[in-house]
């Protein structure tokens, strides 16, 4: 555990809580992609199956349980409790275009051809692109609520901090996981455009809106 890893995890946790609170307090999931949230629920479910097979630490186990629990709670709020506010017409990204290639890639490129390991790999690849339906939705509507941009910023920051964590681990522990690193790089790059808008607009007190 190093400072980048810990702040990365906390940033990830902050993103998840911000989104849950936003939906709960406003009693609305307008502007939120339910598809991205379903993908994140799949990501956590397939990655944390090792909860059943191995114990790493109390920190590790409790964070995994919190992430999984919050992911399903978010999906429940969007598709059940506040379904009437869900903007399905703008959430039109075709997720099969992500799931199918990612599944194929996980079977082809993995650390070991074992069921749990393939599912872990699948979750890593899927996480790197799971935000695309959300970014697609924002590009379609041309705007995002400020609180939604805080959510996205924390989520992108988490992956950027993990990149520093991997540099740290490579130098001090000789550890590197090529699958996680490449997928993490892809994931971080996807946020770059958004980071730019966040810094130039949202942090200056303006709402995030895209030119028509």
């Amino acid at each position: 555990m190093n400072v980048f890893r810990l702040t990365g995890d906390l940033s990830h946790l902050a993103a998840i809580i911000i989104l849950l609170l936003k939906i709960w307090k406003s009693r609305s999931c307008a502007g939120i992609s339910g598809k991205s949230q379903i993908l994140f629920a799949i990501v956590f479910t397939t990655r944390y199956l090792d909860l059943l097979t191995s114990f790493i630490s109390l920190y590790n186990t409790s964070m995994k349980l919190i992430y999984v629990g919050c992911a399903y709670a978010t999906v429940y709020l969007i598709y059940v409790k506040f379904r009437a506010t869900y903007d399905g017409n703008h959430d039109s990204f075709r997720v099969e275009f992500l799931i199918v290639p990612v599944g194929g890639l996980a079977v082809l490129i993995n650390h070991s051809f074992a069921p749990l390991e393939i599912l872990w790999t699948f979750s890593i690849y899927l996480e790197s692109v799971a935000i695309l339906p959300q970014l697609f939705m924002i590009s379609k509507t041309g705007e995002a609520e400020t609180i939604t941009t805080h959510y996205l910023f924390c989520l992108g920051l988490y992956r950027a901090l993990y990149l520093f964590n991997w540099v740290w681990r490579f130098y001090f522990e000789g550890f590197f996981d090529m699958i996680a690193i490449v997928a993490g790089l892809v994931q971080t790059v996807l946020y770059c455009d958004f980071f730019y808008l966040y810094v130039t607009k949202v942090l200056k007190g303006k709402k995030l809106s895209l030119p028509a």
């Binding site: 191995s54 995994k64 650390h111 070991s112 996680a180």
Partner: peptide, 10 residues
């Protein structure tokens, strides 16, 4: 036996 892989990160 296949090598045991540990994923200690979240």
């Amino acid at each position: 036996h296949a090598l045991e892989i540990h994923h200690d990160e979240l």
